[in-house]
Write a protein that binds this DNA or RNA. Structure first.
Lengths: 344, 344
DNA sequence: ACCGGCCCCGTTAGCGGTAACATAGCGGCG
DNA sequence: CGCCGCTATGTTACCGCTAACGGGGCCGGT
């Protein structure tokens, strides 16, 4: 009678299995698999062969517990569906690829309580660092961040108090800049169209900066319209229709993001409205979707990829060299006037 | 001389700290924190208070090792930047929220070797299940999946061999259906515009089904154009321009996704081309971006949210009840004719 | 011949939790 | 009054891996 194939009884493999299969100690197997310490070429080959033929996959749970090291970086962002954070992720990933680190994302949907939960969950895995969007957090979240004892990088925004490190732009300044450019082009009856979301603090700060600059120029918004949920492009159309009907004399529409701006642009073109002659338009973000539109919407890029890169660099750097300190990096978005602001 | 505050010496907290602070054993603390087993209300309060004031965050690494249970579900997808996978993620998240499980995403950029790496990395954390896009994997990846001993759900596609469970649509059939609808509407000179990516197997299968149906109707593609990288909307425009110049007599443009289709639509409208009279258009996916376009592009929804839900349900179900078996779920996309296919 | 040093590999003792079992207290019942 | 059966808590033995150290060969130097 023949013995049944051993792999019939499917128990997940451990170092011990590899060790027995290759005739060396578990420690040596561990050394080989991690490329750490001295192992002769002969045994190395033996071990690798055994590991491969068995199909061994190391258990990082055990490894992490033993070594007190976890090669994970938590990344907490509000949303994946609006084009901006995927690009940040790309920036993060490109940098982290060259280190041993690996990003793990969590999504909050702009809900602070959700951010707190996600953060707690992440910290319970003891990551090597955390990158999270924005400077506004619940008190418990702040406390956890302060206690965590790992590098924390808050991204996107720098208008506020930083927990540890930060990489971002000043949204207030961005709003101001855009307002100045619009005013300089001779527009005078300006409306704002944006998200309703009470927790998109960055959009809020842009609007504040915008209004502040208008005020300095002796103006103020003549209309405003908010939305939430749904297809941003469609919402942009609808809101634009509403505003133009309600305030037929507006000559500029400032959108809180490019997607609704694009919707507004399409609407205006549909209606045969002279853009930028009769009505000027501007958005925010610099998403590459805009490249395909019939006319180039004025916008400001938010340095998304670069923010991701810099944030990842900070984490990676501090992970290598423990006595590097916190740092705050301000990036400066450039205004892209496109074809929807008339030239003086 | 006053004693320095204890939390100055920052060492991360353990169960023992909470146990000492609350005067019960570590085991009892563990029980309280997990809501498992009987603990009197009094001690429960005591423990929770201590844990909260200390700011204790449990170490899941240790917990997972001890309990041989990890409440993570690996989700491996090709890309985050094209609108389709975020929606799948949403579906997954909504279901998983009601279980103890939590998704962890990995991105492959449509590179099989990358998929293999990401999978290896994920399995090394011993997740409770894995959801991954597509049925095509490298041989080692297949082997790992087969060995893993956890529920595996392959999503999006069901035209091929399934490792364990699957939820998806038949892309071949989808392509066929679209071709049949186009032919039925009287179009005869049809071109295809799509991605170059050699590893987008689903787009490839749609094209195969499409061509097969054309063949059955005694036709074949009169032109085809491929792209990769860049802004999809812009690429859609450019490719459309190229095709219309090269083959002025085409009367239908079939796009491999809605984004380039939208670009093509905008281009046609710009050029004053009669859509759908002179030229018909169709895409694939049903992204909600289309709602904001001047005309509704014909498309088929890929049941993305539903796919995510069903996949998550399978994992969750099998996690609860170990002797549930594999299952394959076919979903059926509906054709949305929109305004870019003329009506017979 | 002896010793120090290097290379290679093994042994031991945890890492921070949890499963499983053991145990203490306590009321109820025949 | 003793025993049962419950609830509430403690004890012990790991989970799978790695840090830290130990020690056997083998080299060259003196």
């Amino acid at each position: 009678m023949t013995k049944a194939p051993a792999h019939d009884i499917r128990r997940t493999l451990t170092l011990r299995d590899v060790s027995e299969a290759s005739g060396v100690s578990e420690m040596t197997v561990s050394r080989v698999l991690r490329n750490r310490g001295d192992v002769s070429a002969a045994t190395r080959e033996k071990v690798l062969l055994a590991a491969r033929t068995l199909g061994y996959v190391p258990n990082k749970i055990a490894g992490a517990l033993a070594s007190q090291r976890v090669n994970l970086v938590g990344v907490i962002i509000p949303s994946l569906s609006n084009m901006v954070f995927p690009e940040v992720m790309t920036g993060i990933a490109t940098i982290l690829d060259n280190t041993g680190l690996q990003p793990v994302v969590g999504v909050t949907n702009y809900i602070p309580a959700r951010e707190e939960t996600v953060l707690y969950e992440m910290l319970s895995w003891r990551p090597s660092g955390v990158i999270l969007a924005g400077l506004e957090h619940t008190a418990p979240a702040r406390a956890m961040l302060a206690q965590a004892g790992i590098p924390i990088v808050e991204i996107m925004d720098i208008d506020g108090q930083v927990v540890d490190s930060a990489v971002g732009i000043s949204h207030r300044r961005a709003g101001r800049q855009m307002a100045e450019a619009i005013v300089a082009s001779g527009y005078t009856r300006i409306a704002f169209l944006g998200t309703q979301m009470p927790h998109d603090f960055r959009a809020k700060k842009r609007l504040e900066g915008f209004e502040e600059a208008l005020k300095r120029a002796g103006m103020s918004l003549v209309d405003r319209e908010f939305y939430d949920g749904g297809s941003a492009l469609l919402k942009g159309r609808e809101m634009t229709a509403v505003v133009l009907r309600r305030s037929p004399d507006v000559d500029f529409l400032y959108y809180s993001n490019d997607m609704i701006g694009a919707g507004g642009l399409l609407y205006c073109l549909d209606q045969g409205i002279d853009v930028p002659g009769k009505v000027g338009l501007a958005g925010f973000n610099g998403v590459d979707l805009l490249d395909g539109l019939p006319r180039r919407l004025a916008t400001m890029d938010a340095c998304r990829m670069e923010i991701g890169r810099r944030a990842a660099q900070i984490i990676a750097g501090r992970n290598e060299d423990a006595d590097l300190g916190p740092e705050t990096v301000e990036l400066f978005p450039t205004l892209q006037p496109g074809d929807t602001i008339r030239q003086r």
